[in-house]
Design a protein around this nucleic acid. Structure first.
Lengths: 212, 212, 212, 212
DNA sequence: CATGAATGAGCCTTCATTCAT
DNA sequence: CATGAATGAAGGCTCATTCAT
């Protein structure tokens, strides 16, 4: 499974040494994301991450002080990426709220199914992660939520959407979207797009205003 | 092993012994469910289960041949309970499909939030469980799904409901419902009922037929 | 694998209770011998012995105070049986020493291969048994040896046999005989008799006096 | 009990790290061989091996992935050593077949009694080892056998030896030789050599051709 | 007598973490 | 920087043995 890169490192390194280090950190986060996606948190061992990088376990400790720090950094980096991609989509103000929400849903589904499968685990299954991670991932989820909330509020404001309880509706949207990887098994490449649209159309009904 | 009794006295002791054993099995499954709910599968150790029962780890092996067997029995026992409760609710044919689906959602939410918090993990998070459990829990989820599907089909048949894709809609319903424990934090007892109704009302929109 | 009975209990029990107990002890020793023969000492658990008797592990402790006592009793009982059978054979004074030694070898081979396979383990592999057994089995081996020694001495006395060192020759005989179960794999029933005779003929060469 | 070294590592290590590792592996195999020889397979625990090396059990897993792998490596390394020593002896074509077979027997006895007592267990007692080992040790025994067979065949070819059944005779030879550690208890150093010669002389009678 | 229950000690194995080189 | 080595803590499982009923 080829995943896109994962960390958000961007600030230009001051010198070659720092650049090298940043590159390495980037590689490590990438490998971590892959293992996390394939095996799930509890089956992820430092040994496996190190092996994929042709490194030793001990070397990982030069870049991250603990497994927790490594995994947290990985989650935050992936989370940031996904949220940014969503934010870009939301920033395009063209089209109706429905169209824009549909676009967000499609982006989210593509993220957690094809780009960053580990995120589905993160969003969906925080209960199964060890305590230390829960607080941190909560923040990630909130930022992520915010993007959806904005579009939904605009839809409500212009009468296109109508919800009983905004917070609840957003949570339901979230639960439904992140549950997709559990049941979706594509056989053809085309299946992805079809499923994205079907799911989006279904979920839009949570928000569309109903005629009096 | 029953010895042939010479006198006419029926052998009650065997019965009492069996009852005792059943009680103990029941207690063990209960303790297991609790630990599972509190810690999640991967943090659940036989030692902790045993400790809560004032037993040693080894004693658990008198009742279950392995951790896998114990957890599986626990899941199936709770799963059966939940599904039965749902089935009872569905069996009550009074009211519209909407009313009955609402009732199902409320029962399900109450089950996974108050009665059997460990079930949320089961329904929501199969990806993070070790391989041997996935197949078995899949069956449980399917039986569970079936109850909802039946009511939804009836709603569709009588024109009350209209869906784009039944399977997708049911999956979305499930994802949304089982995600509730992740975000819901009640402060007052009354909160539960309110939330149940709000969530149910929101999710019904996934199914209600929209006017042409 | 059906083995013949194993203990040497014979002294007439004084009453019915004692007779019952003796019968039970007899059964237990038999079952133990079977499990020992099939699994070897280290794979033999009290649970398996008990199961074959439709008893519980705890019940075995009514008859033997420990696993060690049970196994020891079993070994001694089987050992006695085998030695007695050998002694009977040796007691028949007809024939040359060669003929009589051949008969002993055949009896011994039949004992450890068909009748009491567990004995082969005992005679051959005392090194792998826990310390407490070694001393006790040593005595058994000596008694067993004695039967062979007697016939061999007679052969030496009448000039039929000639050995360099009697003790060494007897040990060699023993090692060779008890090693047979390791390499012998019969395909037809007839194979047994053929092998017995071939082995006996080969081993007799250890003793037959050589012409000057 | 002091044993000679045990592994066959010879290819010069490329660097100091590799050399260190090889040395450690060598030490571990040695310690394993010692414990195996003293306690037998079933009483051999990783803890005891580790303790003799001033290591923890976990450290052993840096060198061998399992107990089975460790023991197997140990057996193969010792087996190779013994077989090589025998092969060297057999390669010396000087002398009659009798003389050469005598030399082989002496080497074998010295190997299993003084050099590698654990080997006696291996050759003698495969029945008591867990299944996974049996196949592997079978091969070792066959290679080992082959050396003896070659010399015996030569003796037969030149009329010096005459056997009823070659395979049976070789098996008897093996059984007798490997049984020696069970009964031999030396009191003086000189005893070893005396016993070697006595046993060899006795066993040669299994093969020497008898005058018509 | 017989048994179900309970246990303590022991075993193999895994893994995040530390440290000297 | 990188690594091989080492480890402590923990986990699942087995089994001979004890004991109250």
């Amino acid at each position: 499974m080829a995943l896109t890169t994962v960390d958000g490192l961007s600030s230009e390194p001051t010198n070659r040494v720092a650049r090298r280090r940043n590159q390495k950190v980037h590689d490590i986060l990438n490998a971590t994301a892959n293992v996390l996606a394939e095996r799930g948190y509890h089956e992820t061992s430092l040994d496996e991450i190190a092996e994929r990088l042709d490194l030793t376990k001990a070397s990982l400790y030069h870049y991250f002080p603990s497994k927790e720090a490594l995994v947290t950094a990985c989650l935050e980096s992936v989370g940031k990426l996904v949220t940014e991609r969503l934010a870009e989509t939301a920033a395009n103000r063209k089209g109706s709220a429905s169209e824009r929400l549909t676009a967000l849903i499609v982006v989210q589904l593509d993220s957690i199914i094809r780009e960053h499968p580990q995120m589905a685990r993160l969003f969906l299954q925080p209960l199964d992660w060890p305590e230390p991670y829960r607080e941190r991932t909560k923040l990630l989820r909130q930022q992520h939520d915010e993007v959806f909330r904005t579009v939904i509020r605009e839809g409500v404001a212009n009468g296109e959407f109508g919800v009983i309880d905004e917070a609840v509706a957003v949570h339901c949207l979230h639960g439904a979207m992140n549950y997709v990887p559990v049941w979706f098994r594509p056989t053809r490449k085309k299946d992805y797009e079809e499923m994205y649209m079907t799911v989006a159309a279904s979920l839009l009904r949570l928000f569309r205003s109903t005629p009096a």
